[in-house]
Structure formats: structure tokens, C-alpha cells
């Protein structure tokens, strides 16, 4: 399959990319890793008149620590997330997640920023961004603005990113000591999207839950926080009964689309199972 014709630019700086975006207007589409956009173009689901390729914009790549925060450039590849010693120490949930995305070749191209900005509810980073309370820095013609992950995902393929803007970087508070975490993803095969997946970040105070955030992938029009499930466990011990109750609360907010991965009932049941597994796995890491 060959995509329809389009123009192509490969800027080497962010200001240059923003200028090209302004110049080409609605015709333009930003190309990151290309593993969602190029297949969509081959299938004619997307027919942009001009691609602005960010792969040569070095300032958008890399992971650094700045002012007590971890800052990840939007064009950082999944492979680079996995290889990062800084993330292994400070935010190991990101590498655990990236390892469950696609396969080695695709992870060499796929980027964290593309995964987030595409707005696909099947993508894995959005739920992770919700449990990590990440902030997205968006660059536009009038400068930069910051949007919390909780206000970024509006619907399937709809985000707060405006047509004139580019996602520049992601800012995340590193884990405090003894923070438990897990991303449990059920998929049919390597490279598939989640049939259901749950992300958990947990701290304990003695045998009681001190802080807990739960988010779900591919179980609604966007990644979603399971706030009622979190509230169910707040200040309580992680007994089987309490975990079961939280999983039920998470299942209650699921609204998955039926597809070849399963019907609504199956996906919802698997969401509950992934929540239970993620809470239990996170609990083993709270030390």
C-alpha cells in the first residue's frame, strides 16, 4: 500500500517546525514515529497534504532532570525510555509500560509524545500519564502553555493540542521512596493493543493505603482515572475483599468498544482482573 501524495519537510528545530505548521495550516500533520499515522495514510483514513517530520529536531529528544522534575522530550522513543537509567531509578513505571508496547523494531521508532498526542484510547502512555499526574508542555505560535494530563484527553483522537501546536515535553514528579507501581496489560499477542489494561501507583502507610491512583487503557473513549475505585481503598488495608470492591468500582466506569478483542462484558471483566493484578503487584513494590 502506498499513501496518497503529500509534501514533506524535515525541520531541525522546534521554531522551524512551528513556522512550517503555521504555513501549511490545516493541510499539515506532524509526523513523529509514524507507526499510527503512516498506516492510517496507507489505508486512506488520513490524507494530510503535508507532513512535518520531527525526527530531526534533536531538542525534542531525551530525558533529563530539571528543578526536581523528570522532563521527557516528546520525540523520545520507547526504546530510549526502556534504556534510560534515570527512569529506571526515578520512574520505573515508564520502562515497564514501554516494554509492553508493540515490539523492538516499532519501539525504535514509536515516541512517547506521538503515543500521547494521537489521542487513541488504545495507546498505553495516556493512562500512565494520568496515574503519574504528568504535565504536558505545548508549544504554539504564541509561546508555551502547560496542560495537566487530567485535562488533555477529550475523546477518541481528540486532545487539548491545537492544530497550531506541537507537544514539546512531558514533566513528571519522580516517585517518592517506597512507591509501588504496576502496569498490567492483557493483549492477544505481541504488538496488539490492550484488550484491557490498568496502571497503578501506590504508597502504603503501615498496612493501609496512603495514596493510590488507578487508570485504565482502552476501556472508554479515552484513558480514564478510576477515582471511585481509588476512594474505596483509601486508608484501608489491601485485603482480598477490599481489592475486589475496588475492581468492581473500576469496572462500573468501563465503557469499552466491542471489537475482535472481545465484547463489552469480557473487556469489562478483564478490566477488573487487570486492576486487581496491578494493585497486588504494586503492593509488592512498596518497599
Amino acid at each position: 500500500m502506498i499513501p496518497p501524495s503529500f509534501g514533506y519537510s524535515a525541520p531541525s528545530s522546534l521554531p522551524e517546525a512551528l513556522k512550517l505548521l503555521a504555513q501549511h495550516g490545516d493541510e499539515a500533520k506532524i509526523l513523529a514515529g509514524g507507526h499510527s499515522l503512516l498506516p492510517m495514510m496507507k489505508f486512506r483514513f488520513a490524507e494530510p497534504g503535508h507532513l512535518i517530520d520531527l525526527n530531526r529536531v534533536d531538542e525534542l529528544k531525551g530525558i533529563r532532570e530539571e528543578g526536581g522534575l523528570i522532563v521527557i522530550g516528546a520525540m523520545t522513543s520507547e526504546s530510549d525510555l526502556i534504556a534510560s537509567k534515570l527512569l529506571t531509578q526515578k520512574l520505573p513505571l515508564l520502562a515497564e509500560t514501554a516494554l509492553q508496547i508493540a515490539d523492538p523494531q516499532v519501539r525504535n521508532r514509536g515516541t512517547i509524545g506521538g503515543d500521547i498526542a494521537h489521542g487513541d484510547p488504545g495507546n498505553d502512555h495516556p493512562a500512565i500519564m494520568l496515574v503519574l499526574d504528568a504535565t504536558f508542555v505545548l508549544s504554539g505560535p504564541k509561546g508555551e502553555r502547560s496542560v495537566p494530563a487530567s485535562k488533555f484527553f477529550h475523546g477518541t483522537y481528540m486532545t487539548d493540542l491545537q492544530a497550531s501546536e506541537i507537544l514539546k515535553e512531558i514533566r513528571i514528579q519522580p516517585f517518592a521512596a517506597k512507591t509501588g507501581y504496576a502496569y498490567c496489560k492483557l493483549k492477544r499477542k505481541t504488538g496488539d493493543w490492550a484488550s484491557a489494561a490498568a496502571a497503578v501507583v501506590l504508597t502504603m502507610s503501615g498496612d493501609k493505603v496512603s495514596t493510590l491512583r488507578i487508570a485504565l487503557t482502552n476501556l472508554a473513549a479515552t484513558a480514564i482515572r478510576a477515582e471511585a475505585a481509588e476512594a474505596d481503598l483509601q486508608g484501608r488495608p489491601l485485603s482480598d475483599a477490599n481489592i475486589d470492591a475496588a475492581a468492581k468500582a473500576a469496572m462500573a466506569i468501563c465503557d469499552p468498544a466491542a471489537d475482535l478483542r472481545g465484547d463489552v462484558e469480557y473487556k469489562t471483566a478483564m478490566a477488573g482482573e487487570m486492576v486487581k493484578r496491578a494493585i497486588r503487584l504494586a503492593a509488592t513494590r512498596c518497599r
Partner: peptide, 14 residues
């Protein structure tokens, strides 16, 4: 790096 050549444009390999 290993890549899948069906999902990268030739111009990107300049």
C-alpha cells in the same frame, strides 16, 4: 537500529 521498512518513508532515511 532494526526498523520496519514498510512504515518509514525513504525520505526519512536521507
Amino acid at each position: 537500529k532494526s526498523l520496519k521498512a514498510c512504515t518509514i518513508l525513504a525520505v526519512q532515511c536521507h
